[in-house]
């Protein structure tokens, strides 16, 4: 069972934590300029969307500080489920994650740390369909044999 992220470089969590305000702002700017955004967020407010970015950043900081991969596997289906129940389209999430990837590319300088963080985001995007299935079935902890390689 792969239930830990690959060894993360020292300082990764704090680098990400220190950049969260810039990252959140960058992601928010990208998404508010997306022509499909109103449809993707189910006509909810941009404030709710921005709050979700803050929550996402907090989750990732905990993940990187704790190296507890199960946190993602449990929380993402919950996030999908609760936001989808309020009108967010499932298609919103990969669009949002891609925006995070761009923000990370543009806001962080350290190439090594950036690559490690992007690996985690790539994993989330790759497993989007499974996350949707788990959010629908009500599961939180799912496919525990999966892991970031």
């Amino acid at each position: 069972m792969q239930n830990r992220l690959p060894a993360l470089s020292p300082g990764l969590a704090e680098t990400y934590a220190a950049a969260t305000d810039r990252l959140v702002a960058h992601v928010h700017d990208q998404l508010t300029n997306n022509v499909r955004i109103t449809e993707l967020i189910g006509h909810n407010s941009f404030r709710l969307m921005r709050d979700s970015h803050q929550s996402h950043a907090a989750l990732m900081v905990t993940l990187f500080r704790s190296n507890a991969f199960e946190l993602l596997m449990r929380t993402i289906p919950w996030v999908y489920r609760s936001y989808h129940a309020r009108g967010f389209a499932y298609d919103y999430f990969p669009v949002e994650l891609a925006a995070w990837q761009i923000a990370i590319q543009e806001c962080l300088d350290n190439q090594v740390l950036k690559a490690e963080i992007l690996t985690v985001y790539e994993w989330m995007i790759q497993h989007h369909d499974e996350m949707v299935k788990c959010s629908i079935s009500g599961e939180g902890l799912f496919f525990c044999s999966a892991g970031v390689q």
Partner: peptide
Amino acid sequence: TVFNLDKAL
């Protein structure tokens, strides 16, 4: 709330 774990940490 799982999003408050960072503050707990």
